Amino acid sequence: MRIGPSFFDGKPSFQLVYCAFDHYAGDIHMLDEVRRLDDGRYLGIGRTGRSAEE
């Protein structure tokens, strides 16, 4: 877990990084991002990559 720049727009997001775990989600370099919107709702999106850098 970390706070880092969003892959999509560079704004800060809470990120769940799965590559630290011995699990399928880590093998496909899954990363979830969560952000709180101005109206108090939360927005989450996940993505996968070919490498940890993606």
Rank of each mutant, 00 (worst) to 15 (best):
M1N: 11
R2Y: 02
R2S: 11
R2P: 02
R2N: 12
I3M: 10
G4I: 02
P5K: 08
S6F: 06
S6M: 01
F7M: 10
D9Y: 05
G10N: 14
K11G: 13
K11D: 14
P12D: 10
P12E: 07
F14T: 07
Q15K: 07
Q15L: 11
Q15H: 01
L16T: 03
L16I: 11
L16Y: 05
V17G: 04
V17L: 14
H23F: 01
Y24C: 05
A25I: 03
A25E: 15
A25F: 08
G26F: 06
D27F: 06
I28A: 04
M30E: 02
M30A: 09
D32G: 03
E33H: 10
R35I: 00
L37D: 09
L37Y: 00
D38K: 08
D38H: 03
D39W: 03
G40S: 09
R41T: 14
Y42C: 14
Y42A: 11
L43I: 01
G44V: 07
G44N: 06
G44P: 00
I45P: 00
G46D: 07
R47G: 14
T48D: 02
T48K: 08
G49I: 07
G49H: 04
G49L: 02
R50K: 14
R50E: 15
S51L: 01
S51V: 00
A52S: 10
A52Y: 00
A52F: 04
E53D: 15
E53R: 13
E54N: 05
